[in-house]
Design a protein around this nucleic acid. Sequence first.
DNA 1: ACCCATGTTCAGCT
DNA 2: TAGCTGAACATGGG
Length: 258
Amino acid sequence: MPEGPSILLLQRDLSYFINKTILEAEGYAELDYDKLVNRKVLDVKTWGKHFFICLSNTIIELHLQLFGSYTINERKPKINPKLSLKFAKDELNFYVVRVKLIDSMDEFDERGDVMNTAWDPELAKQKLKTIPETFICDALMDQHIFSGVGNIIKNEALWLAKIHPLTRVKDVTVAKQNILMKEIVKFAFEFLQYKEEGTVIKNCGAYQQEICRRCKAPILKAEGGKTKRKNYWCEKEQILKSTTETNGKSKKSTRKKG
DNA sequence: ACCCATGTTCAGCT
DNA sequence: TAGCTGAACATGGG
């Protein structure tokens, strides 16, 4: 479910509840449910993969993690909702989410959200300057820099910009960075459309692909970087180059065979 | 039936 | 002490 685009769809679905009043709140989340009852939904917002239901006295912050889902006016047959909100005519259920009540959204800088109109690529580039040794694949997954980017957008943006995932940030030229910034946002919004059509993977050029959509060369796949998420890259078009060959960490890596 | 996956936090170790 | 690793959460699709 949950990269930034999916959360925008969630927002769209839940905007239906704006101005409706919560009459009952329950679930197995450890929350002060009393704070939610008889409160009107003032707004629903997103920040990257985070989702917020704003009430007059508190804000419900939700994160779908990997398996999170929600239903409107229906129940999943096998699992209990972590949070269930009942309105006069409607019911909203969240499953396997992380949820907490917060007082303010101040810590969520909308300039860092790649799908927000306030998204500021220059700010992201400044942040990149502070982490020259980091692999670009890790930097893209850093929610403080590219809030909303997940493993699919990461891989596709790198493929679109023709950057090897294990390139150090310092080795990504400014020109390449600019291309990357554009591709991230462009693909994120395309993702939104594909998500609605259920064709995300089909429309990927590298992620979970066998061959490169552009040049038909093999797509390579490996866990990479600090985050150990899977990288997919084109053997021909995304060549690893570095300006320096420092870094003596030639740890032969723990390879698992199964 | 098994493996894998659009994510993140945290305990425990070096 | 900072950094890394694996576990934990717990569902669903191929």
